[in-house]
Design a protein around this nucleic acid. Sequence first.
DNA 1: AAGTGGACCTGCTAGC
DNA 2: TGCTAGCAGGTCCACT
Length: 271
Amino acid sequence: MPELPEVEVTRLSFADRIRGARVTAVRVGKPLRWPLGVSHETIVGRRVGEVSRRGKYLWVALDRGGLLMHLGMSGSLSFGATTGAPGPHDHFDLVTARGTLRLTDPRRFGAVVWSPAPDAAPAATLLAGLGLEPFDDRFDGAHLHAALRRRRVAVKTALLGGEIVVGAGNIYACEALFEAGIDPRLRSDRISRARAARLADAVRSTLARAVELGGSTLRNFRDAHGAAGEFQLDAKVYGRAGKPCVRCGTPIRRVVQGARATFFCPVCQRR
DNA sequence: AAGTGGACCTGCTAGC
DNA sequence: TGCTAGCAGGTCCACT
């Protein structure tokens, strides 16, 4: 589920409220993608610091060490007063004096991993190889063009990989390519500098707009207040197979790339 | 070495 | 109405 906008919206919805809270208990449910990697006693008693984001990961700093969290495909975080016993999909609770940070994740592709520092193992290992943040000044047309030229995969696959730029998952990669007028099947090394510049702009503007709209809620995404996102109502191509292109009326096409669905307008998006 | 496909796990929905 | 196949926002790993 959660691509960069959903993760960022989640972060913004609880970071200020949890900062400074003392951890009083930790509860772990069914196994997530990786084990927590530390005993509960190591975490209890510590104070929560800043919550930051790298790609689709959140780093919840404690006064020593911290937790690297990922929402996988179906995860969401809530923060507030605990309301009753954990449900069948609530697999991690960080109980603090100000409320409980709870990870709910039906498919359990998400993760909560202890690390002594964000730039030490195991966090550093998981974050290694991530590309630039889309809002980093260094992510521009020249950078994207140079990086795309080194690959021979479809441009959509290159965006999804996250080794060039992080944050765009299946929804926003499709949307950004529509915005830039580029066929998602086009080989990455055949993209001109000018089109790469447009694509870089499109990636940034698409992700920024999605953050403003609170992310996309397709099934179950909620921020830590429980609010749904509204970007899905604004999607031009994602999930719109067979429906008319908002720009030209041509039916939106659905193809499969790397076992993922890709949506695009065959007229507005050119090779 | 880069590219591709399978694996992880559960729930929902479209279609028969 | 009820069952089932197919599909879902991510990423790691093994294999070619």
